[in-house]
Amino acid sequence: MIDMQKLTYRKKSRKYLIPWILTGLISLNSSCSKNDSGGDPPRIRFITDTGFVSHDTTLKTGQRIRIGLDAEGMDGNITFFQISVDNGVRQIFLDSGLNSAGLQYRLDIIKTVNPVEKWTFLVMDRNRNKDSIQLILNKSDSSHYGQIRSFADVLLGAQENSTAGSFFSPTTGFVYFLDMAFLNQSLIDLIYYYGLYDGTLSSPNESDAPAVFTGPTGLVNWTVKNETRYDTTSISPQAFDLTENDSLLLAVYEPAAGKRKVKYVAKDQVISFKNQAGKIGLIKVNGMEPSSTGTVSLSVKIQE
């Protein structure tokens, strides 16, 4: 027997169904249009040519190796490349955006004092598909520490100082004024200036320095711009003074932590750095006169 009450209710309710059906269709239409990543993921491989390390290996502390990477997008350009290193704590060594069908990359790695370093190389394509490879570097039990060169009381002048130069070469140990530095561009790893962030240590490839050192020999006109990466440390000045080999230099060196400049330089600060040539070092700030005509006194220790 037909329930007339229910039938009537159904008939009436149909009137109200239309807007809800339309609403549902609209929602369906909207939800179907979300991005779907698809396609084959990109590929990344180690270059296996002579001179490149492409397998897990054991290295002495301070030993340097070169690795090469070759990546290609399969169903979309490569848009992201990342290098991270895990020595107990994972750190990002490099984040880079790009938009290219392929990628080739070379990297020099210096073995730190950590027993194990796990290096991961990741690429991602336009569709957010990823591929990654890893390289594990173990520390050799026969590790020994390397020699260092020391430069005591290196006096650098700020940009308006007329008696002390602002450019230092750890290779020669000389301090240069701008004009002479221009003639020895490949030697310059360290620059001092005083400005927006008080005393600042930087290098020719840093972004703010060209606005400080201007003119015909200004940094804008340099053809070789070395880049030094700095990292502040908690090392005491006494520990710095006692250092006679590169053990402390390697112990405090964090591959992923380097910045292009160190700001607000202060007395007794100890700063870790790595220069363009891959040499690791430490800088101790002995003292400073905080002005654009002032000076900073540094002691520098760097790997031979």
Binding site: T79, F80, Q82, N99, L122, M124, R126, R128, K130
Partner: peptide, 14 residues
Amino acid sequence: RGTADGRDIYLTST
């Protein structure tokens, strides 16, 4: 009722 549900999806990073 107002609803917002959005995502910024970086393609040059993860």
